[in-house]
């Protein structure tokens, strides 16, 4: 038996909007720790890892570990039927082949339940070791989204170069080239507007902008984004989900042959 009641139902709606274009089908894993997901895009270039900790739910009952295979497009269709202020409860029976999403309006005058068929999905779980990254950039999430969107109108790939001087985003295309440099800036009114660059050593990596742009669909989840890089490793683009956990996107670099 599984019953997870989330007061801020809009968080789950935003999570689905952030990942449904990157991943088609995925297993949601439920354990005493929380509600989590790890999945790759169809070409295995990008990976998304989601954690919503048990403590973040108003009520969290998970009698035993459960893995539920869901089509994210169908799940998104169902969650779109929930109001932004609704409380969302996820319910499933052990060994059942459906999951139920229950939506309660804030003043309890409307209660809906949507039952969705589960699917069997071969799990392709990767072990991701904890890594000390050589460059960690924290910046406003809207600024990062703006840069990715702007550069993708010029080129297909972005070179992200981080050094003590700042972080440079560069692209080249048929019509020309572009560079955007962000310097550390902590003299801001609100901490979420700061750009903070921590560098152990300079890092330069090349990535497909198509994926970066897809990751920025998580922007509504957090005011800030953290980009962690080490040479010759996938980048991690992390959006913290307030008091609940995180959504992390891993993207494999492009390497000159």
């Amino acid at each position: 038996m599984l019953e997870l009641r989330l007061l801020q139902g809009s968080l789950l709606k935003k999570v689905l909007e952030a990942i449904k274009d990157l991943v088609t089908d995925a297993n949601f894993d439920c354990s005493a720790t929380g509600f989590s997901l790890q999945a790759m895009d169809s070409s295995h270039v990008a990976l998304v890892a989601l954690l919503l900790r048990a403590e973040g739910f108003e009520h969290y009952r998970c009698d035993r570990n459960l893995s539920m295979g869901m089509n994210l497009n169908n799940m998104s269709k169902m969650l779109k039927c929930a109001g932004n202020d609704d409380i969302i409860t996820i319910k499933a029976d052990d060994g059942g082949d459906t999951v139920t999403f229950m939506f309660e309006s804030p003043n309890q005058d409307k209660i809906s339940d949507f039952e969705m068929k589960l699917m069997d999905i071969d799990s392709e779980h990767l072990g991701i070791p904890e890594t000390e990254y050589e460059a960690i950039i924290r910046m406003p999430s809207q600024e990062f989204a703006r840069i990715c969107r702007d550069l993708s109108t010029i080129g297909d790939t972005v070179v992200i170069s981080a050094s003590k001087e700042g972080v440079k985003f560069s692209t080249k295309g048929d019509i020309g080239s572009a560079n955007v440099v962000c310097r550390q800036n902590t003299s801001v009114d609100k901490p979420e507007d700061a750009t903070v660059i921590e560098i152990q050593q300079p890092v330069s990596l090349t990535f497909a902008l198509r994926y970066m742009n897809s990751f920025t669909k998580a922007t509504p989840l957090s005011n800030t984004v953290t980009v962690s890089m080490s040479n010759e490793l996938p980048v991690v683009v992390e959006y913290k989900i307030a008091e609940m956990g995180y959504i992390r996107f891993y993207l494999a670099p492009k390497i000159e042959e």
Binding site: M40, S43, H44, V45, A46, L47, E124, H125, L126, G127, I128, P129, T157, T206, A208, L233, P234, Y250, A252, P253, K254, I255, E256, E257
Partner: peptide
């Protein structure tokens, strides 16, 4: 053109 790597190059299946 640079070559796009995949996740299995970096992480092992568990």
């Amino acid at each position: 053109h640079p070559n796009q790597l995949t996740m299995s190059k970096f992480f092992d299946y568990t």
